[in-house]
Simulated scan of single mutants.
Amino acid sequence: MHEGKLITAATRRQVLKGAAAAGAGLVVAPWGRAAYANDVLKIGVAYVSPIADVGWTRQHNLGVEAIKAKFGDKVAVTVIENVSQPQDAERTFRDMAANGCGLIFGTSFSHGTPLQKAAKQFPNVKFEHCSGIVHLSNLGTFEAKYYEGTYLAGVAAGKVSKTGKIGFVGGFPIPDIVGPANALLLGAQSVNPAATCSTIFLNSWFDPGKEKDAASALIAQGCDVVCGMTDTPSTVVAAEEAGAWGIGYASDMSKYAPTKHLTAFTLDWSSEYVGATEKVLGEAWTSEVRWDGLAEGVVKMSPYNAALPDDVKALLAEKEAAIKAGTLHPFAGELKDQKDEVKVAAGSVLDEKGIRSINWFVKGMVGNLS
């Protein structure tokens, strides 16, 4: 009995080397070196950054591990790390498909156009795009309602902040990041209407040094709670060192900030990976738009800091239950933007289309979308 299925962690350099050797023909990438039985589903997964012990890619890799645990010898999975450039991503997805992968996952917004091109070239292959916005007959998408997690984190931040100033470090000013940044402040304003949130965008998903500098700059400006939404724990590290509160993203980052980790909005992609694989194996896969949050267990809050008073923890539990039940919506109006213009009227909520395309900051956000 096999202990599990072969997983090949290939680097981008290996893939490019294989592509150069193959020229215009089919690329013999690392996953193409093993022969599998016809009834084994070959799966390819591209990560935008290295597999670390915490962070975005770590959580996706846990989804891959869930596939292995669930399906064992029925699948053979290959993961490729550090696929961040569009040209490399297109080559990677094309090579995966050409070498027999029947299901391919892209794990970054930046993988969008490369996935679309590969999906059109290989209509019989099923593609899944995390953070995607374009859908084809063989390209589905899945995403998390990050804003539900940041809203709760914001409530906690509003309760512990003494300055009323929160900081947010984001990768890129795209809707998936802008929405959660807004929700962070809205959560804080629900308990402290005067709260503000200063933002810095790195224009990178993985730059530990730049991220730490950004977090330190926000703390120097008076932000005593900082939240990072990139693929490193650098923001919470900077907070711990400065005596400020830190909010983690994707994974529980408390080991990097043992005294000042306020909480983290974590991501559990297991149901997305297992569900898509199960449907492909059962020949029941169809292109879907999946957008899941707290209620579905894709977004989860890590344990709150023990220093939080019991009444604050009770309030957070109450608000989380209300979000899950649909009786509390982080983007309920009235909401105004930085120009004091009403964007969501009182009694209304920002709909899914509006959230997923949001390109404006709520009133109280400090910074611009660049």
Results as ranks from 00 to 15, higher is better:
residue 203 N to A: 12
residue 206 F to P: 12
residue 215 A to F: 05
residue 222 G to C: 00
residue 236 V to S: 05
residue 203 N to T: 05
residue 210 K to N: 13
residue 201 F to M: 02
residue 237 V to C: 04
residue 200 I to M: 05
residue 217 A to I: 06
residue 205 W to K: 10
residue 229 M to F: 15
residue 232 T to H: 04
residue 223 C to D: 08
residue 223 C to M: 05
residue 200 I to L: 11
residue 199 T to M: 06
residue 238 A to T: 01
residue 195 A to Q: 01
residue 204 S to H: 02
residue 214 A to W: 10
residue 226 V to D: 02
residue 232 T to Y: 04
residue 229 M to W: 05
residue 194 A to F: 02
residue 235 T to N: 09
residue 211 E to G: 12
residue 225 V to E: 04
residue 202 L to D: 02
residue 229 M to Y: 15
residue 205 W to I: 09
residue 201 F to A: 03
residue 200 I to G: 02
residue 198 S to N: 10
residue 194 A to P: 05
residue 224 D to L: 03
residue 209 G to P: 08
residue 210 K to M: 09
residue 194 A to M: 11
residue 195 A to T: 05
residue 195 A to S: 07
residue 238 A to C: 00
residue 207 D to Y: 08
residue 229 M to S: 15
residue 202 L to R: 12
residue 221 Q to D: 11
residue 193 P to Q: 05
residue 229 M to D: 13
residue 208 P to H: 03
residue 228 G to N: 02
residue 209 G to M: 10
residue 215 A to K: 02
residue 228 G to Q: 02
residue 202 L to I: 12
residue 233 P to Y: 07
residue 198 S to C: 06
residue 221 Q to W: 01
residue 221 Q to M: 00
residue 231 D to K: 10
residue 214 A to I: 08
residue 228 G to H: 05
residue 219 I to Q: 07
residue 206 F to M: 12
residue 237 V to L: 12
residue 210 K to G: 10
residue 203 N to L: 11
residue 234 S to F: 01
residue 231 D to F: 15
residue 206 F to N: 13
residue 219 I to G: 01
residue 194 A to I: 06
residue 222 G to L: 09
residue 208 P to Q: 15
residue 234 S to W: 01
residue 225 V to S: 02
residue 206 F to L: 06
residue 202 L to Y: 03
residue 210 K to I: 09
residue 207 D to G: 07
residue 225 V to C: 04
residue 211 E to H: 09
residue 222 G to M: 06
residue 209 G to R: 07
residue 197 C to K: 09
residue 224 D to P: 04
residue 238 A to S: 13
residue 238 A to N: 03
residue 205 W to R: 10
residue 212 K to V: 03
residue 200 I to N: 11
residue 215 A to H: 00
residue 234 S to L: 03
residue 208 P to A: 14
residue 239 A to F: 01
residue 201 F to P: 01
residue 219 I to C: 07
residue 196 T to Q: 08
residue 236 V to F: 00
residue 220 A to C: 10
residue 219 I to D: 01
residue 237 V to I: 15
residue 231 D to V: 09
residue 217 A to S: 15
residue 218 L to H: 10
residue 213 D to F: 13
residue 199 T to D: 03
residue 198 S to H: 13
residue 216 S to A: 15
residue 203 N to W: 10
residue 222 G to S: 00
residue 229 M to V: 14
residue 200 I to A: 02
residue 213 D to C: 11
residue 196 T to G: 12
residue 236 V to E: 01
residue 212 K to L: 02
residue 228 G to I: 09
residue 201 F to Q: 03
residue 228 G to Y: 01
residue 226 V to P: 01
residue 221 Q to T: 04
residue 215 A to W: 04
residue 208 P to Y: 04
residue 204 S to F: 07
residue 219 I to A: 07
residue 226 V to E: 00
residue 206 F to G: 07
residue 207 D to M: 08
residue 193 P to R: 08
residue 221 Q to H: 06
residue 197 C to R: 02
residue 238 A to Y: 00
residue 221 Q to N: 07
residue 207 D to N: 15
